[in-house]
Design a protein around this nucleic acid. Structure first.
Lengths: 151, 151
DNA sequence: TCCTTAATGGGATTGATTCGCATTTGCATG
DNA sequence: CATGCAAATGCGAATCAATCCCATTAAGGA
């Protein structure tokens, strides 16, 4: 209840109508705590017994991204977009190229690098995205056995 | 001629048949010197009077990526993949969010950062991708006038 | 030159995302 | 609390990059 009130305020502040669906979406995203696809979010909502359309999920995600309440990332590969609640301070990700696990990493050492580039190229940098690919603990252990984890 | 011979060797080395199409694709990619979509590449080849199918373009790009001869990047936004000849030492990009210009940047200060993360998360990093977004020289000048460059 | 196998054409298909439009809902106002 | 209107929603159709299928062609070693 206190939760849903927080979402309500958040939406209000951005001049968005505080609909049940938008609140559910925010709540679910916060629950996940990791980037999820629109479809996974949709299914999770269904599981909770919430009746919602996939279009609505996409549209809600769009406005939330636009208002900077959540962030959207497109990793290479299966080209599906993933969404997550925007945290304080931006994050990067460790993406396991085997099991597809995504480990969020806080902190970013690149601000000075960025400003150097700004001077060099007369380019005004407003944001950046960094993803690191490799093998997570589990997957690097048995990197040889092949036929399991592939989604 | 010398050029096409170079491509031939390159393909041979990777155990790929050195077809005319693959050579044309490499040549065209080198000509562009910037990341291009499969479709743009396809149209460029057509313009040169080369008869080729879009499927073939996609397939050739796939193998070339697999062999590490070219690289594929998916910037957010219109989620189209872009391809470019892989340079010595990897590169990052400055992506203008207004006119979509892409400025390649050589050099990368992140190796120590990466190894720190490897220890911290017991994650074996095999690669990374960094893109920086913002406004290029031309676009930051008249950032106010709005109705032009939007692709 | 011949043969095997990889590469290709091109049309159909997939799959994520978006669109169109009729219906419903949020919410400001009286 | 009733009313009106714009914003939000549902759901099916449409879009669009990318992939697949399979019959045909070309590469390159013997």
């Amino acid at each position: 209840m206190a939760e849903s009130n927080r979402y309500r305020k958040l939406l209000k502040k951005e001049n968005l109508r505080s609909t049940n669906h938008r609140q559910s979406i925010l709540e679910a995203l916060e629950g996940f705590g990791e980037p999820v696809s629109a479809e996974r979010l949709y299914l999770a909502l269904k599981d909770k017994g919430i009746s919602i359309s996939l279009s609505t999920v996409y549209r809600a995600l769009d406005v939330l991204v636009e208002k900077n309440i959540i962030s959207k990332t497109d990793f290479t590969d299966n080209n599906r977009s993933l969404y997550e609640i925007r945290q304080e301070g931006h994050k990067h990700h460790l993406v396991c190229i085997r099991c597809r696990k995504i480990i969020p990493v806080t902190g970013c050492p690149f601000h000075d690098y960025a400003s150097r580039l700004e001077e060099q190229f007369d380019f005004s940098i407003t944001g950046h995205r960094l993803e690191l690919f490799g093998y997570c603990r589990d997957c690097s252990v048995d990197e040889n056995s092949r036929s399991d984890g592939q989604a």
